[in-house]
Amino acid sequence: MTELTLIQGVNQALREAMKADPDVVLLGEDIGVNGGVFRATEGLLKEFGEDRVMDTPLNESGIVGTAVGMALYGLKPVAEIQFLDFIYPAFDQIVSELAKLRYRSGGQFPCHVVLRAPYGGGIKGGLYHSQSTEQLFASIPGLKVVVPSTPADAKGLLLSSIFDEDPVLFLEPKRIYRSLPGEVPDGDHRVPLGTARVAREGSDVSVFAYGAMVPVAQQACQGLDAQGIHAELIDLRSLVPLDEAALLRSVEKTGRAVIVHEAPRFCGYGAEIAALLAEKALYSLKAPVVRVTGYDTPFPYALEHLYLPSVDRVSRAIERTVRAA
């Protein structure tokens, strides 16, 4: 065990993967000499050389398209998209190619690419360095979507993603890249995809969160203990595939649900969870499902602290749910 930040967990996973398997190659903008704008790939160029740590031209479709070609050959490319906000030029490659190659070829051409992308607000990034658009990708069949919230999970989930067989969009909550260090197992630490984590056990209400909203929800839950409200916090970790069983188990126990995400509410990932609970856990529910989310506006700059779900907003939502019935 070593205490690391989340970004160090990412870096360690990349290094471990590259050491273990010569087919793992990295590509992206500023990832080589510069070590990545967030330093996720720090030191890797020196260790593994420019054939495996490729600084690319500034073109996301080229990055993803080239990674797709490498994966078709049998390599395990890990591409960095500098910010999730800049992924859209590659949307065609992701939706039309990456996510569909295995299916459309009857399994002849699996295409295992990992796309790493820092996402989310809280860093004074304004419209184009803050967005959470995971729901766009979670709705595409054939693409896994993974979001860690701790340094240990960043390492363990990324290693699992790199050695998975399917394309993975790996979303990194950049707001907590450095702010919340934690113990990280050394060596080849893997966390299976598709499993949620019970971040905190409780009996009165289930709180579902992922990424940078996990520590916010955690703080809210802790604050409510004094009032006798014992909230259970589930860190989804994997949006696709979703660990439905873990969610249903929790709600069957608590009878209440609060969903927290940064992304806008309308058609957000929380809507899928709410629908799931309506379909499969309605008779366990004692109160309406509540969502605490970003607003249905573009991501603001000066007012981002009011836009993002805060400890206070999450606390009030939990209280409201518990008091409702």
Binding site: G62, G65, T66, A67, L72, Y73, D92, Q93, S96
Partner: peptide, 20 residues
């Protein structure tokens, strides 16, 4: 390699295959 309908998307794939 598997062909798709969008135009031109296979072009970077050829580059990735060649580099691999």
């Amino acid at each position: 390699v598997s062909a798709s309908s969008p135009i031109g998307t296979q072009i970077p794939h050829a580059v990735g295959l060649a580099l691999a």
